[in-house]
Design a protein around this nucleic acid. Structure first.
Lengths: 248, 248
DNA sequence: TAGTGGTCTAGACCACAAA
DNA sequence: TTGTGGTCTAGACCACTAT
């Protein structure tokens, strides 16, 4: 089947690392070892270990064996972009309270983030997300004009809009950009999350785009402080995280 | 010189993208085009474009040309790990108010994050960072026992501890892990940052490690809300960011 | 000095996209 | 159908680490 050699090797190595077969700091077998062991070429082995390096699990330096950096697995793209998918992976019960869904002209920021002409009609949706019954996050999403109809066709209580869009309309997110900062709860935030106005919130704004780079949605998610933490690992060669001034 | 072929190609492509020679969504030349144009093998060209893909600048899908996703450059590892280096890149004046520096036994969390035995002596340092004179961030760092002496040898008002450690002692950070969340200001935070207790703060905790994976420092940085934003870009293939429950 | 990862080549075949 | 990126091979030489 779709048995891709380097992914097989990467999966096996990842499984061994997550199972604790290598201590943090321990050395992995050499590339040539792995190549003979899997009867694969060195290039294929390198692709496998590059995958794990990109996941932050292992590190390498010229001349020395690769070393294990962490034991924890990394979440998938889907888990990052879909609250429902993430919560399910945790085994927590996720519910949604649907608050509003209106068509209106895009604000200047929405138009820019969605690469639309100013005042293009977008679909604005507000939802409250609960984890195990606890109000956890307020989600305000602007869907681009060209997906608005597909979103409106979904039932109000749909578990995951992005999952349903993928299944029903073939609209799939391939790229994302995330902006993370903190702010005080506004009055609507406070009422919905059952906290005081001005209480600290963790805000994650993100835009999802298709494989062709076309923006699908722009969302502003506000989490109660203490309910989630974002984690990023980096190295001198891969630096996915960036710090910016102000509110991005 | 250290003229590495694929980095040359990557640099040229990156420069062209940042200069706006390709619109967002525009297609890059094909791999074979680039290979002949640079008289390099296809493998080398692929390594170049993989570099840009890891930076989030371009995306790709089998069968179609690569496309440009963004025009902005990404910060370097150093800029992410060193507040001073980051602020300098912005052209803002960064000052530090030194608050305390004491040796004490590691807390349970510090010992774990630094991979030390419980109660090992660490060096705890607290600093207030100001941007253009504005109190912006409170930084609480625990340096591992084996670097404590080197840090103590530095002057109190050193611009960047990590830079100085690299220059003076050859201790260089190669890997980092970052945990980002929000919380309310404690009384010390509030006093130092000149805000009210409970005001929202953006917290970035991170551990830096050497090329061999040995943890150097564990820090808790708290930013005034609105002063910084973190940004991460991801794709279906590279997902460096992760969301976790609770406070990590 | 031997082992290891980093770079590079020149081919090959396949899966997928677009016309 | 043609072009494109994705996977894979079997070599080669170099830079660096470890001993």
């Amino acid at each position: 089947m779709g048995t891709i050699r380097y992914l097989e090797i990467a999966d096996a190595l990842r499984a061994a690392i997550l199972a604790g077969e290598y201590a943090v700091g321990a050395q992995l077998p050499s590339e040539s070892d792995l190549a003979t062991r899997w009867s694969a070429s060195r290039g294929t082995v390198r692709q496998a270990v590059a995958t794990l390096a990109a996941e932050g699990l292992i590190g390498s330096r010229q001349g020395a064996r690769r070393i294990v950096l962490r034991h924890e697995r990394r979440h998938s793209f889907g888990e990052l972009n879909s609250f429902a998918q993430w919560a399910e992976g945790l085994g927590q019960e996720v519910t949604s309270r649907f608050l509003s869904r209106v068509r209106r002209p895009a604000t200047a920021e929405e138009a820019e983030r969605l690469a639309l002409a100013p005042d293009t009609g977008i679909l604005a949706v507000v939802r409250l997300r609960l984890l195990d019954g606890e109000p956890t996050m307020v989600e305000r999403t602007a869907y681009a004009d060209w997906v608005a109809a597909a979103v409106e066709a979904l039932p109000d209580d749909v578990r995951s809009v992005m999952d349903s869009l993928a299944n029903e309309s073939g609209i799939v997110a391939h790229y994302g950009e995330h902006l993370i900062d903190a702010l005080g709860a506004g009055s609507e935030d406070a009422r919905l999350l059952e906290i005081r106005r001005g209480s600290p919130l963790l805000r994650q704004r993100h835009v999802s785009a298709t494989a062709t780079g076309r923006p699908i949605e722009w969302t502003d998610d506000r989490y109660r402080a203490g309910s989630v933490t974002f984690s990023v690992s980096n190295s001198a060669v891969t630096t996915p995280l960036e710090r910016r001034t102000g509110e991005g």
